[in-house]
């Protein structure tokens, strides 16, 4: 699975060679195309998953309490 992941990452770099003109970027600029369109809701959901699952975290932003319940 990890190998597949890194192959995908290489694909990312290669696909970066394509060019998209500024006037073709309208769709990408739509709000629901954002990588994280509801950051606060996601924070709440992540916090809940984090207190119920072992694989918490995974990003460099920090915080959160013990979740000792």
């Amino acid at each position: 699975m990890r190998g597949l992941f890194y192959v995908f990452m290489c694909f990312l770099f290669l696909s970066g060679c394509s060019s998209i003109s500024p006037w073709e970027r309208g769709t990408l600029a739509k709000e629901h195309m954002s990588l994280d369109p509801s950051p606060m809701q996601n924070t709440l959901r992540s916090h809940q998953y984090g207190s119920r699952e072992a694989a918490s975290g995974g990003s460099s932003s920090s915080g959160g309490g013990c979740g000792c319940y």
């Binding site: 990452m9 990312l12 770099f13 970066g16 990408l28 975290g57 990003s59 460099s60 920090s62």
Partner: peptide, 26 residues
């Protein structure tokens, strides 16, 4: 104590798709 680091790439694939890959270590 927790030390964490991450590195990632966000890439516009075409005019209607976007992808991000991220690796983190704690």
């Amino acid at each position: 104590e927790d030390w964490a680091g991450n590195v990632g790439i966000t890439q516009v694939v075409n005019k209607s798709a976007l992808i991000e890959g991220n690796v983190s270590y704690t």
